[in-house]
Amino acid sequence: MKFPLPQIVKSLFPELIWKMPAGGNALYFTFDDGPCPQVTPWVLDELDKYDAKATFFCIGKNAELYPELVELIKTRGHSVGNHTYSHTKGWAKRTGEYVEDIELANSFLNSTLFRPPYGRITKHQIKRLSARYHIIMWDIISRDYSSVVSPRKCIREVMPHVREGSVIVFHDSLKASRNLFYALPRILESVHKQGYKCRAIDL
């Protein structure tokens, strides 16, 4: 599937948040799958260069391993979201099991923001989770995690699609680091020059 997502996909799941309201030249950078000691502190330093704020959707087991990184994310002015404890696909789990995994993650994260790994979640799971969480999807994904996407291509996956209110996905993980280390500084510089302000999701 190419990104940004076709409007028909978004229309099937209107209860999910695909984009933030336009206004104030705001963009919403998000980082999935951390925290990671080799990557997350570098991301925070890059964001600081532009006074950019972001949202980090953390895997619970990583948050359990590296609570000091979760705290560092918060103290640097960013928001934290839940990305399940074990990075599990909603389609592969019964709703009860899936919710339990998310609640376990939240014992380390204490967030009302949730993003399903791979974007795979069922209608019934959405209904259960929406009572407690804002489910944040995206309208742009960098594909930084892909071994067949070059660092330059990673930039091209993002920049032509940027609009006010865009929710952009990156990954603060070792798997994504080759592309992230190249693309993120250049994308941050580009959006800064265009007058955009990077904000954390705060709902």
Score class of each variant (00 low, 15 high):
H192W: 05
D51M: 05
E103W: 13
P35R: 01
L109P: 13
P41F: 07
C58D: 09
P35H: 09
V39L: 02
F57G: 00
V39N: 00
V148P: 12
A63E: 09
P14Q: 12
P14D: 14
I102E: 14
L180I: 14
S142D: 04
M159R: 08
G90C: 04
I126R: 06
Q38G: 07
L184A: 00
A52E: 01
A54V: 02
S142Q: 00
H78Q: 11
P21V: 08
R186G: 15
L188I: 02
D32M: 01
D32A: 01
A63P: 03
I136F: 07
D139H: 13
L184G: 00
K153S: 05
A200F: 04
P14L: 15
K93L: 11
V39P: 11
D144I: 15
G60A: 05
V191F: 12
D202Y: 15
D172E: 04
F56L: 05
H124E: 08
W91E: 14
F114H: 06
T95W: 05
T55I: 10
R199D: 06
T112C: 04
R94S: 13
Y182K: 02
E68P: 06
A52C: 06
K93S: 12
T122S: 13
I155A: 10
S173M: 07
V99L: 06
D139W: 14
K61T: 04
S166V: 07
R94V: 09
N82L: 13
E15Y: 01
